[in-house]
């Protein structure tokens, strides 16, 4: 009986060794890219500039500029484990007028199946106060970021819609919805940094030599819809100050949805 037991234990042990080695072989190796495609929409239709759109209040806007920052990406596997994408080089400015900006490709992601995607809409507070020499690419106030930067109140505009609306009483019926505010440098003040958290049953399969694409629908009208229905007539045609932009920041958390994922 003792002998049988020890044989059993030995075989179990050997078996478990096999299983663990098999598991090891299954583990994914290496890194690959992952692309998030930001597809701006207006409700169920594709988004179009210079076109009349009806917002929740029933008012009309005609958008002439649409830009927003995305950064601080975190990728989540089905088991809940997270991979934080390094911040450096991973600040992106989505511009409706430039198609190439709408594909955000994150490089050197550990191979794996990712079902959750988190990111900040805007620029984190640390980067908002970093040394000027590190403000390159999308964050360069003399370059790509030039119309997304408040010079008088050091900080980035996270989300910007310029439009016209018959309901605007400003010159040329213009509207400027500029959302920014990272919480203040020495005095705590309005923080409009919002983390977007998306997940679904489909996984983006990151592998060496592949580039899965997460196709994200971005319903721009949602920025005016809920929980804070925005009325140009009563809330104003423009805001350039963080505290006035909180309503829109609380709305645009819900602006993003995963539509589908390409793994081929």
């Amino acid at each position: 009986m003792k002998k049988i037991n020890s044989i059993l234990i030995a075989s179990l042990f050997i078996g478990s060794l096999f299983i663990s080695s098999c598991k090891k072989e299954d583990e994914l190796k290496g890194n690959g890219p992952l692309t998030l495609h930001f597809d701006n929409r207006a409700g169920s239709a594709d988004f179009a500039m210079n076109t009349n759109l009806t917002i929740a209040s029933g008012e009309t806007i005609n958008v002439t500029k649409l830009k927003y920052y995305v950064s601080n990406f975190v990728l989540v596997k089905a088991d809940g484990s997270e991979y934080k994408v390094p911040q450096n080089g991973n600040y992106f400015l989505i511009d409706e007028e430039t198609d190439s900006t709408q594909d955000v490709t994150l490089q050197n992601i550990p191979a794996g199946n990712y079902t959750g995607f988190k990111y900040i809409l805007g620029v984190d507070s640390l980067r908002s106060t970093l040394d000027v020499s590190q403000r390159t690419g999308a964050l360069d106030p003399a370059g790509a970021g030039s119309d997304m930067y408040w010079s008088w109140n050091s900080g980035y505009i996270f989300f910007r819609i310029d439009a016209t609306s018959p309901q605007s009483t400003e010159a040329g019926n213009q509207c400027f919805f500029h959302v920014g505010g990272y919480g203040g440098y020495s005095t705590p003040s309005t923080n409009n940094i919002r983390t977007i958290s998306l997940s679904g049953s489909e996984a983006a399969e990151v592998r060496i030599g592949r580039n899965p694409e997460v196709h994200i629908y971005v319903d721009i009208l949602q920025a005016f819809t809920s929980p804070n229905a925005y009325s140009i007539a009563t809330d104003g045609a423009s805001f350039h100050m963080p505290a006035s932009a909180v309503k829109m920041a609380d709305n645009y958390i819900d602006m993003f949805n995963i539509n589908h994922i390409h793994n081929d």
């Binding site: 106060t129 040394d131 020499s133 930067y149 010079s151 109140n153 050091s154 440098y185 020495s186």
Partner: peptide
Amino acid sequence: GGINQLDLLPIAPI
């Protein structure tokens, strides 16, 4: 106190 870095200061008057 709107500007929090000397390096960023010139952008404002420009």
